[in-house]
């Protein structure tokens, strides 16, 4: 039989075995803790501002003269959750192609960032949005109206991508 001697209980000193001084120490510690600053963030009022490295909701970059996306469909191909649907169309502008329809099903999206990684135009990037709410499955499919975000609001992410991608 494996008998362990010299356990923690046997090595305790007399005062430790009495419990009470140790209990008093513990109570003193918790009492001090009560007056220390709290770590809680009061969420809806105090919001956390993520860094550029944060992978939030994927969005399309909107430049001054329209969207960057050329509807190549690579994001749609790479998406492991099959959340992206792109339909290409022709435009008069220099880059000739644009997405007629660009939809991301936010119930499917797993925020992996592969779409962003594969995009040759840096047109789809991960934003800082983390409170994504909807009431129905239909609402969860974000079209171009929700996806297009002005480039000024995405600067931090774009800089991060140029540095680390």
């Amino acid at each position: 039989m494996n008998v362990t001697t010299n356990t923690r209980a046997q090595r305790m000193t007399f005062w430790e075995k009495l419990y009470l001084p140790e209990i008093a120490k513990g109570l003193a510690l918790t009492f001090k803790t009560m007056f220390k600053p709290k770590l809680t963030r009061q969420y809806p009022e105090e919001r956390w501002e993520p860094l550029g490295s944060y992978r939030g909701r994927p969005v399309l970059v909107l430049e001054e003269d329209g969207e960057r996306c050329v509807a190549c469909g690579l994001c749609s191909r790479v998406c492991p959750a099959l959340a992206i649907e792109v339909q290409a169309g022709e435009t008069e502008r220099e880059k000739e192609r644009y997405p007629v329809k660009f939809e991301i099903n936010m119930l499917r999206c797993i925020y992996c960032g592969l779409c962003e990684e594969v995009c040759p135009e840096e047109a789809i990037v991960m934003s800082k949005d983390y409170d994504i709410v909807f009431h129905s499955q239909e609402e969860a499919i974000f079209g171009k109206d929700k996806l297009l975000v002005p480039i000024a609001r995405l600067q931090e992410r774009l800089e991060f991508l140029r540095q680390y991608k």
Binding site: T30, T33, M34, F35, K36, P37, K38, L39, T40, Q42
Partner: peptide, 8 residues
């Protein structure tokens, strides 16, 4: 209990 655990 919250105060003791650094909560509000």
């Amino acid at each position: 209990s919250a105060w003791i655990q650094y909560r509000i």
